[in-house]
Simulated assay, not measured.
Amino acid sequence: MLHSSIFRLAICFILIVTLGAAAERSAYAYHTSADLAETAMTSQEWDAILQRDAEAEARTESPVLKPASSPVFYKVRSGDTLYRISRSFGIPVQTLLAVNGINDPGSLQAGQQLQIPSEQAGLELPGGQEGIIRQVLTSTLTAYTAGVESTGKKPSHPEYGITYSGSKAEEGRTIAVDPTVIPMGSTVFIDGIGIRKAEDIGSAIRGSRIDLFMDDVKQAREFGVKKNVKVYVLEGKA
């Protein structure tokens, strides 16, 4: 009787172990299949990403060509150095040397024209016109009008709205300057403003400061004071 009970227990134990192993194999097979399915799906996504990258690269290899910027030149002044010029335009000295084929940095001469890579300097003259720059300044900008608040003159005054150079002040063209820094009649390109002409002076306009003429008093006041603005004095007159 005892042997019979032990035999039955042994049979039950064998069955439990067998069924457990089968269940474990089934579960293992299930998880393995799921992992394979996930791996296959990830590979498909990766292939799609590679395909998109290849298409993007193909588009990059044939870019749409932009019109080349018109050349900009700087006319060397007495006392100029390549280091000073490079700082004025914010470009490396090595770039100036390479673009202009200069082997000896100390060979600069007054009146010599250096080509400035306008894209690197962030400089583009209006209309893409070719320009020769003879002076670069860092200026403070303000604005003025023809009225009493700026000139002390009323509309009835015979010289109301008339500039120091004798022309009638015009918004979008006239600026007041210190003629010892920017000669009368000079054409200047003001960064963020555009082309202007030095036609006027003012008692408060000294050094590199520039006063922009405006028709409207409110607009002139709202313009306020703008500091550290790059100004390029161009060769010739407007």
Rank of each mutant, 00 (worst) to 15 (best):
residue 15 L to T: 13
residue 50 L to S: 11
residue 37 A to E: 15
residue 47 D to V: 08
residue 119 E to F: 09
residue 177 V to I: 15
residue 155 P to C: 11
residue 187 T to Q: 09
residue 86 S to R: 01
residue 34 A to I: 12
residue 44 Q to L: 13
residue 62 S to P: 00
residue 4 S to T: 14
residue 72 V to F: 07
residue 118 S to Y: 04
residue 89 F to C: 04
residue 199 E to M: 03
residue 135 Q to R: 10
residue 210 I to A: 03
residue 158 P to F: 07
residue 213 F to W: 03
residue 83 Y to R: 02
residue 218 K to N: 11
residue 86 S to T: 01
residue 30 Y to D: 10
residue 26 S to L: 13
residue 229 V to N: 07
residue 233 V to R: 01
residue 46 W to Q: 15
residue 114 L to G: 11
residue 94 Q to L: 14
residue 179 P to Q: 14
residue 149 E to K: 00
residue 89 F to H: 05
residue 11 I to M: 07
residue 7 F to C: 02
residue 21 A to P: 00
residue 136 V to W: 09
residue 3 H to P: 03
residue 66 K to L: 14
residue 67 P to T: 11
residue 167 S to N: 06
residue 160 Y to S: 05
residue 213 F to V: 00
residue 7 F to P: 01
residue 148 V to D: 02
residue 209 R to Y: 08
residue 107 S to R: 05
residue 147 G to R: 06
residue 110 A to W: 12
residue 51 Q to N: 15
residue 127 G to H: 03
residue 157 H to Q: 01
residue 46 W to V: 13
residue 1 M to P: 08
residue 170 E to C: 03
residue 5 S to P: 00
residue 153 K to E: 06
residue 39 T to N: 08
residue 47 D to S: 12
residue 65 L to W: 10
residue 60 T to C: 05
residue 9 L to T: 09
residue 237 K to T: 15
residue 41 M to T: 14
residue 179 P to V: 15
residue 9 L to G: 08
residue 213 F to Q: 01
residue 158 P to T: 02
residue 75 K to H: 07
residue 22 A to R: 07
residue 15 L to W: 12
residue 80 D to F: 09
residue 116 I to T: 07
